[in-house]
Design a protein around this nucleic acid. Structure first.
Length: 677
DNA sequence: GAGCACTGC
């Protein structure tokens, strides 16, 4: 086999006839196992060909002959689309015919589609309509070891479905560490089997198949002594590699934007002191918040006689693959989200990575040839790391998950088949919130129609409640709430901030500013966009609005409107021409919108203190308006807010709107009786 | 007076 060329834009697998992939030797074994057992766990690294080949093997072996198809789930949209394209190419068919994909807003499938790639979240949505997922003969859950919220729920659901569908075949792709765990999960059964003294039936349920990946060895280097300032150490290591090591690009893992910028500044400063005969060193940032055009630079091959250094967040650990990386520098930390059920506050804090994560990072150095990984911590520190990252389901606000489970007909959410159960406090808090929103009744059953409709909308529960209330005559602001909901899903990406240009951004925002707060400001920005800037990227640039984000808001709004129409809600659009009412003298409408928002966000209420900070209703937490909020520099009394996030020292609220205190008791009497106890 | 790891419906 030829060595793949360094610098190739495509990953080697694309150039290999599929018969040469390592997986080809396992074809018979795979087909036999899948035929024989309900569950197959496939262990294989990137490059093993599992995602592209297994579906083709299954299709050729006749698993689609009865009109059913094969589903392969992916945790990310981009993976679903690109893998589908590659398989279509290998099968020499047009994408959307025999091979297709389905992601939110894009369904590229047809009645002929036999192999369908889709996001795990979307397959869960399909289960709402088709509870046994009966249109599929095979369901493959790819990258299950990432333990995303959706794939965890999907596994629990598949375990349940399996008992009712003997014909269904389940394939789980996983990293080595978790394979046994996944198999045990499917084998472990409820009380009946245990009563028969049959505890372990893993052998009847499934098998694990290991595939070798296409990976080159990576030399791991540790620090001898721990280091205080890993940013500084990373900079030194980059410069050392550049002066002493052969050609090859460098990938540095940092925790966030600020560290990334510091690292790049220092590298750029000090590279000038190095031997002028060395190659040029080009440092590039990569994080999700970076505008897309700037993200693209990291994928371009470096100019001649230039070595690239990419300083990235965790996005480069699994979501994104950069070719040509030979050296990895791992700071050993990652920013993780955690949810405190007592306060309802999410925190974002840098914590040590897990061993699994550190291994994945190191592996990024061995994709094109043998590489090196420099860990900015000691070997003993590595040994004391957790084996794997705490799954999302154990550190998230579970209200959306519980709502979805209830709609799937799972009444006892505490006893659902979780592969790892969430702490009961998280479940209790979610049930309480859903009850106070009116989505659940006193028996914790989904209410009709409110609860079921909330579950079916692709929005978080507080927002779907506010949207569904907007149709009530006392609020009568459905069109506006549709827009506000769509804009809120953009999570702060509405305005583009070019570096060092925050003042201009603030200035641009002020043009759309509405006294009552951020939600009405977003409404204004959207109206201006659809009337003036929809086809005009320049208009957006002039107003510092994010063209892509607003275009997405238009899609989201359309999708939400279709959901409402399906519910039989009349969405007569009369919004155009109404924007001036909101903006100039439309006090009544603005108040109705604010009241309507309060019906959903009463649990996110706070009062401004004389020093400009906010206090939660129970008085326990001090919050600050996020600098991106209008309330950052304005006076208010009571407010509701969309999100609260603790970063570093301070706890910030985003998307803030003024309300009246009385509205809280008016729209959430039970909730505030409990709170004021 | 000053800032946001990453996904997904």
């Amino acid at each position: 086999m030829a060595e793949p060329n360094v610098g190739d834009t495509f990953i080697p697998a694309l150039y290999k006839p599929s018969a040469l992939l390592p997986i080809a030797q396992h074809r018979e074994a795979l087909l036999y196992t899948i035929e024989t057992y309900p569950v197959t766990i496939v262990v294989g690294q990137t490059g093993s060909g599992k995602t592209t080949q297994i579906p083709q093997y299954m299709e050729k072996a006749g698993w689609c002959s009865d009109g059913k198809s094969i589903a392969i789930t992916q945790p990310r949209r981009v993976a679903a689309t690109t893998v589908a394209a590659r398989v279509a190419e290998e099968m020499r068919c047009q994408l959307g015919q025999e091979v297709g994909y389905s992601i939110r807003f894009e369904d590229v499938t047809s009645s002929k589609t036999r192999i369908k790639f889709l996001t795990d979240g979307l397959l869960l949505r399909e289960a709402l309509v088709d509870p046994l997922l009966s249109r599929y003969s095979v369901i493959m859950v790819d990258e299950a070891h990432e333990r995303s919220l959706s794939s965890d729920i999907l596994l629990g659901l598949l375990k349940k479905i399996r008992k009712k569908r003997a014909d269904l075949r389940i394939i789980i792709s996983s990293a080595t560490l978790d394979a046994e765990n996944f198999l045990r999960f499917f084998a472990s059964d409820s009380s009946e089997k245990k009563a028969q003294g049959k505890d372990d039936n893993t052998k009847d349920i499934g098998r694990i198949i290991s595939l070798e990946g296409r990976m080159f060895p990576v030399d791991i280097h540790y620090l001898i002594d721990p280091v205080e300032d890993y940013v500084e150490r990373a900079v030194q290591t980059v410069l050392d590699i550049h002066s002493k090591e052969p050609a090859g690009d460098i990938l540095v893992f940092m925790t966030g934007r600020e560290e990334i910028e510091t690292t790049i500044d220092r590298i750029t400063d000090r590279v000038q002191d190095l031997n002028p005969r060395l190659q040029t060193l080009q440092a590039l940032p990569l994080y999700a918040g970076l505008p897309t055009d700037q993200q693209m630079y990291v994928f371009e091959p470096a100019a001649e006689n230039t070595r690239k250094v990419i300083v990235s967040t965790n996005i480069a650990e699994a979501s994104v693959t950069i070719e040509g990386i030979v050296y990895v520098i791992d700071c050993g930390f990652v920013k993780l989200r955690a949810y405190n059920p007592k306060t309802g506050i999410e925190t974002l804090t840098a914590v040590p990575v897990s061993k699994a994560s550190a291994t994945q990072r190191a592996g990024r150095a061995g994709r094109t040839k043998a590489g090196k990984c420099y860990r900015l911590y000691t070997e003993s520190a590595f040994k004391s790391l957790e084996e794997s990252t705490v799954p999302e389901i154990q550190r998230s606000n579970l209200a959306p998950v519980i709502l979805q489970l209830k709609d799937l007909g799972i009444d006892n959410v505490a006893r659902f088949n979780y592969i790892t159960p969430p702490p009961s406090q998280l479940i209790i808090r979610a049930l309480e919130l859903l009850f106070s929103l009116g989505a659940l009744d006193t028996y914790a059953r989904l209410t009709k129609p409110l609860g079921t409709r909330m579950a079916e909308l692709p929005l978080e529960p507080m927002l779907s409640k506010a949207l569904l209330q907007a149709v009530a005559p006392e609020f009568n602001c459905l069109s506006e709430m549709l827009t506000i909901a769509a804009m809120m899903t953009l999570q702060g990406t509405v305005w583009v901030s070019h570096n060092d240009n925050r003042k201009a951004e603030d200035h641009a925002r002020r043009k759309f500013a509405v006294e009552e707060g951020d939600h009405l400001t977003l409404l204004n920005a959207y109206h201006a966009f659809v009337t003036k800037g929809k086809k005009d990227a320049k208009w957006c640039r002039d107003h510092m609005l994010n063209f892509k984000a607003l275009t997405k808001a238009v899609s989201t709004r359309n999708q939400l409107r279709k959901h409402l129409e399906r519910f039989g809600i009349d969405v007569s659009e009369s919004l155009y021409g109404q924007e001036d009412v909101v903006r100039v003298g439309g006090r009544d409408k603005a108040e109705r919108i604010r009241r309507c928002l309060t019906t959903g966000f009463f649990a996110h209420a706070a009062r401004m203190m004389p020093d400009g900070s906010f206090k939660t209703v129970d008085g326990g937490t001090t919050l600050w308006a996020h600098p991106s909020s209008l309330m950052f520099n304005r006076k208010a009394d009571w407010v509701i807010f969309h999100e609260v996030m603790e970063t570093g020292e301070k706890t910030y609220i985003r998307d803030v709107t003024k309300i009246e205190k009385d509205w809280l008791v008016e729209y959430a009497p039970e909730y505030y009786r409990v709170q004021q106890r």
